[in-house]
């Protein structure tokens, strides 16, 4: 069976520019040394990866390891500098919850807008509105403006909408970072059901217990390099033992 994602020798570098870019600095750069004002950082270096359909993969590593860059490249939001990438599916990329929601729109209006951003049609969201608001515990707030909601209510609304997304491949970046304990439990119950499903998940997170519970495999990145890829328990264990910078185990 062909993998849903195939990555070969994938590399990505970012220029880190010091100072503001303006017309003046652009003109100056074209006259003097172009690299004087910036240096390059390796976000990913020679990453190889095969992800099969239906697999749940956790991507772990310290801040700046390249987790988000990897997900953004798979999502098509960034182009790699080198390497090969094949993605054989439609993709949903969720980087935090509530992106695109607007403070001055109501809860209902935001649910429709947020759904549209992730490919849900207005009719689909409207038909599911009662259940959607009930799951988010926001039934009494349907006409309230988003800015009157707490961050927890906001996250619940966004997560509730994403439950209706029907795609084969989900890329989640720090999906549960803003959640309090009770909301986390609700989310975990959703993920527990999805664990048995045929959808593919690639989840970048610092929540190691989520990786061991939800994911079969894990990828450990460090300064853009693949340190380990294998069974979630083993990779997480190696990551913890190394304190984030250990040797390659597979």
């Amino acid at each position: 069976m062909d993998p849903i994602i195939r990555i070969r020798d994938l590399s990505k570098r970012f220029p880190v520019r010091q100072g503001r870019v303006s017309l003046l600095t652009m003109v100056r750069d074209s006259v003097v040394d172009r690299t004087a004002q910036s240096f390059m950082v390796d976000a990913l270096r020679d990453v190889n990866l095969d992800i099969m359909r239906g697999e749940k993969i956790g991507v772990i590593g310290n801040n700046g390891a390249g987790k988000t860059t990897l997900l953004k490249i798979i999502a098509g939001l960034l182009r790699p500098d080198h390497g090969r990438l094949e993605v054989r599916s439609t993709v949903t990329f969720l980087a935090g919850y509530g992106i695109g929601m607007l403070d001055d729109l109501s809860v209902e209006e935001n649910a429709i807008l947020y759904g549209a951003i992730y490919g849900l049609r207005r009719q689909t969201v409207l038909a599911a509105m009662e259940e959607l608001l009930s799951w988010a515990e926001l039934t009494d707030f349907r006409n309230a403006k988003l800015k009157t909601l707490s961050s927890g209510m906001f996250a619940r609304l966004a997560f509730s909408v994403t439950r209706y997304i029907e795609r084969d491949l989900f890329l989640l970046d720090e999906a549960l970072s803003a959640a309090d304990r009770s909301f986390q439990r609700k989310c975990e119950s959703v993920f527990a059901v999805r664990k048995e499903g045929d959808k593919t998940y690639v989840v970048a997170t610092h929540n190691l217990s989520f990786v061991t519970q939800f994911c079969e495999k894990a990828l450990w990145l460090h300064h853009g390099r693949c340190m380990a890829f294998g069974t979630a328990d083993k990779v997480v264990d190696a990551y913890i033992k190394s304190n984030g910078s250990g040797p390659k185990i597979s």
């Binding site: 020798d9 590399s11 020679d46 098509g76 182009r79 790699p80 500098d81 080198h82 390497g83 090969r84 990438l85 094949e86 993605v87 054989r88 599916s89 439609t90």
Partner: peptide, 16 residues
Amino acid sequence: MKEIKDDTVNRNRSFQ
């Protein structure tokens, strides 16, 4: 290392 070209990013076009 191979420099990336358009055909090296295959984003489900042929599968749609």
